[in-house]
């Protein structure tokens, strides 16, 4: 089986909003240089899902594909250090965190270049745009079925996967024909694995294949479907009233009385 797992590089999500500024001209939020790059959190679960299939079948080959403007090799090689086989980067000035339509077409072009792909895995959404649209977009463009918000998977043979996914009020089991697209949420049976020493050495040796949008025959501007009209920080209006007491238990009792007085309870 040949798997492509798509990962996005983004600014470290743990960095506070105060380290960002607003670029009013380009309608973007810009992280300060103190914000390190990271792999988008949910994408690690898509990588883990691919590796779970490889654990059971050594013939599984996993290619990591990422689209963006300025990949840090240290960051973007992390999925390879976790156990993936090779790395493809789609890079360019015109690919700075673009519209999901552009990203989806770019990833599809890469998948077509790689060829004979059976499965593409994603995180359920990026950590900095939260649009959850690129996995579905890739599936629609390729004409493949898509299971979103998956939390577990199993190859049941006969060109089918058995997938558990989040549903309203629980989970559900579906079977899906390959080739398919799956997006993964964090409610998996275990957390994404750490890189091994061997994986880190392996990742050092992997030379990424690098394409530009034009290498892949993409006309980026014509693919854009949404535009950012404005960007701003949310305003907080809440003023907290700290309830004190001689001891934590006293403060707890005072809190209950204050909530009663304010008719909250």
């Amino acid at each position: 089986m040949r798997i492509v797992t798509c990962v996005k590089q983004m600014p470290d999500p743990e960095s506070p909003a105060s380290l960002y500024s607003i670029d009013d001209v380009n309608k973007k939020v810009v992280p300060s240089s103190n914000v390190p790059p990271d792999v988008s959190d949910y994408d690690r679960y898509g990588v883990e899902a691919a590796l779970m299939l490889k654990d059971k079948d050594a013939d599984v080959h996993i290619s990591v594909v990422s689209l963006g403007i300025d990949h840090s090799l240290d960051v973007i090689k992390r999925p390879v250090a976790m156990g993936c086989d090779d790395l493809y980067l789609i890079q360019g000035e015109d690919l700075d965190d673009p519209d999901p339509s552009i990203t989806s077409h770019g990833l599809v072009a890469a998948v077509n270049q790689i060829g004979d792909v059976d499965l593409i895995t994603f995180g359920r959404q990026s950590g900095n745009r939260d649009q959850a649209s690129v996995g579905p977009g890739v599936a629609v463009i390729l004409g493949w079925p898509c299971v979103t918000n998956a939390v577990d998977l199993e190859d049941i043979g006969d060109g089918k996967l058995r997938v558990e996914r989040l549903s309203e009020g629980g989970t559900e089991i579906v079977e899906v024909n390959l080739p398919a697209v799956l997006t993964f949420s964090s409610e998996m049976p275990h957390q994404p694995r750490y890189a091994t020493m061997r994986g880190i050495m392996q990742a050092k040796r992997v030379e990424p294949t690098i394409w530009s949008a034009s290498d892949l025959g993409l006309d980026v501007a014509s693919l854009e479907k949404i535009e950012v009209l404005d960007v701003f920080f949310p305003t907080s209006t809440t003023e907290v009233e700290i309830i004190e007491g001689d001891s934590p238990a006293e403060a707890g009792r005072a809190l209950a009385q204050r909530l009663r007085e304010a008719r909250v309870i």
Binding site: S236, T238, G245, A249, A251, G252, L255, L259, R260
Partner: peptide, 29 residues
């Protein structure tokens, strides 16, 4: 950061705050 979005807050160990809070709420209700 949670205090910035809250109307009321207690700074303290929940293990001590919550049982006393629960007991008092029960009484009030």
């Amino acid at each position: 950061q949670i205090f910035g979005s809250s109307s009321f807050g207690v700074v303290g160990d929940y293990k001590q705050v919550v049982p006393a809070f629960a007991e008092e709420v029960k009484k009030l209700l």
